[in-house]
Design a protein around this nucleic acid. Structure first.
Lengths: 213, 213
DNA sequence: TCTTTTTCTGACCATATGGTCAAGTTGAGG
DNA sequence: CCTCAACTTGACCATATGGTCAGAAAAAGA
């Protein structure tokens, strides 16, 4: 045997412990906040799901609100990066198509995160109001500018850029936020094929709707 | 002066009192549940907003959950009636166009209700699961059947009926559920003209997207 | 007017929850 | 080893909350 330079059983260095526990707590918190909302979530529930004593949560995150804030901020970052595909595109068919794909993937991979975000915004964005007013506002203005450029270049139909963005967000996030309703109507969880069909349907209607099909 | 057969100051008959108080409580509850979620809402807050002592709420609605249930059920009814315009239509341009109009009007007139519904579904529909499985399921199947008929008659492009319904719900309800975010990006509340533009944009993209423009 | 039924409400209670703390345990550095 | 700092956690506390209740007030009916 080679020497066990990285022990598999107990890799408990200080930084490892911290990273691992924070990640575990954040993951559990995301689920609980998504399922119960901020008010309905309890630190005890999060602690149980994380497999840690409640007091330990307060060691890493001083208050429930601080923990919630971290969850929302992390989601926001993931959420913003979906725009990368948008920017690198030559025209709307490629750019918006890729953006829909990316956002649908996020809805599938991070449904809890999307729900927390939705809940936060629905309740008036008490903790990320500043993000809305700065980061999101600038971000949106940038995408709308791209859309307007495409329109002026005759690459797509002249639709309102802001409302188009809202449509993209709404349609894609709906599959996460209203996933439960969709599953009920679908008669069970969406299969790989179902998700493919969803992506195809959304892209088809939207892309034809902006005149690029 | 004519005789005051209907006294303006104190029309306090038994049924009037009951109707008035129930309506007041339900209205206040809708707002508070929308703003704070079920878990974050408190009976005291609802009571204050309704201008009644807390104990009085429990006289009309035995528990917080019973009150919440009534709020959700009332919303669901309004929500379903938006389909009337859908059914009476000859073709998709008229039917789906009218449905979008109706749902946009609801988003504008009952944003709190829409949020409560969204929150309920996001949390796994703990109180209206049966409605989803029965009423909503049948309702949706009916509309999808109409869509498929239109498709088979060549009146619109062959898009998946279920996913089209999801798109309609998502795009229209987004203006209620994410109204706060939209207002921030818009730089203030949506004016009449803004709402008109929103309706026009949504209808334009969707109707062109299903090939009826 | 008198009785009955409904409505109203301040005071109260049991419980749950966010958060604290002091005493332990464990890894890191010397 | 030994010391120190980081981490862990059971027990505890103050508060807030959903819900109860007994008695007052008011309307309906006789």
């Amino acid at each position: 045997m080679t020497r066990p330079n990285r022990p598999q059983t107990r890799p408990h260095s200080r930084v490892e412990i911290r990273q691992h526990n924070e990640a575990t707590i954040l993951s559990a918190a995301e689920k609980v906040f998504a399922e119960a909302g901020f008010g309905g979530a309890t630190m005890q529930l999060i602690a149980d799901m994380a497999g840690l004593p409640k007091a330990n949560l307060h060691y890493y995150f001083p208050t429930k609100e601080a923990l919630y804030r971290r969850v929302v901020e992390d989601i926001f970052q993931i959420w913003l990066h979906a725009a990368d595909s948008f920017d690198a595109a030559e025209g709307p068919a490629e750019g918006i198509g890729a953006y829909i794909d990316a956002k649908m993937e996020i809805s599938r991979a991070h449904p809890a995160g999307s729900k927390v975000w939705a809940s936060e915004v629905m309740h008036g964005a008490p903790v990320i109001q500043d993000y809305l007013e700065t980061t999101l506002r600038d971000w949106t203005a940038g995408r709308v500018a791209v859309i307007n450029r495409w329109i002026s270049e005759g690459k797509m139909a002249p639709v309102d850029g802001d409302h188009l963005m809202y449509m993209l967000w709404a349609t894609t996030q709906h599959y996460a936020d209203f996933g439960h309703q969709i599953e009920v109507l679908n008669g069970g969880p969406l299969s790989d094929a179902d998700w493919q069909a969803a992506k195809t349907s959304v892209k088809e209607v939207v892309l034809r709707g902006i005149g690029v099909i």
